[in-house]
């Protein structure tokens, strides 16, 4: 079965220096909720190219979308994770790279 076509245009704020992750780190700098989706912004603060291979929400592999899955050093990329989240519940969202490393972010009290 073909996956549902998901086309969206997102504008994501990336103020210089905001968010987590210092130099040398791969970090989620922003997480936002939309109806039936999470959006994560991943910053590659390392000196190596990073490729995101999988996404996990609350211990389950899930679909995700991005305009590019490979992130050069110093660059950022937004990842949209379609998910029918429940108001007031908590979520742990993980992005897994091609080396198996994971980058985590958590949402408390989704609203």
């Amino acid at each position: 079965m073909k996956a549902p076509v998901a086309v969206a245009l997102l504008v994501v704020a990336l103020a210089a220096g905001c968010g987590a992750g210092g130099p040398g780190e791969l970090a989620v700098t922003q997480t936002t909720l939309q109806p039936r989706a999470f959006t994560l912004v991943l910053r590659n603060g390392s000196d190596e190219v990073v490729r995101v291979a999988q996404a996990i929400v609350n211990d389950a592999f899930v679909d995700f979308f991005a305009s590019a899955r490979t992130i050069p050093p110093g660059d950022v990329e937004a990842f949209v994770v379609p998910y029918h989240w429940i108001r007031g519940e908590n979520y742990e969202i993980r992005l897994m790279t091609s080396t198996g490393s994971t980058v985590d972010s958590e949402i408390d009290d989704a609203s």
Binding site: L9, V11, A13, V28, T31, T32, V80
Partner: peptide
């Protein structure tokens, strides 16, 4: 939320201001 570390985020629906524009293509 950071690399190999766990963190908490109190997130709210709605998006943010200007910055990077990302076009999300379809699954194909």
């Amino acid at each position: 939320g950071t690399f190999t570390r766990r963190g908490a985020l109190s997130a709210a629906a709605g998006v943010v201001g200007a910055g990077v524009t990302v076009r999300l293509a379809d699954a194909a």
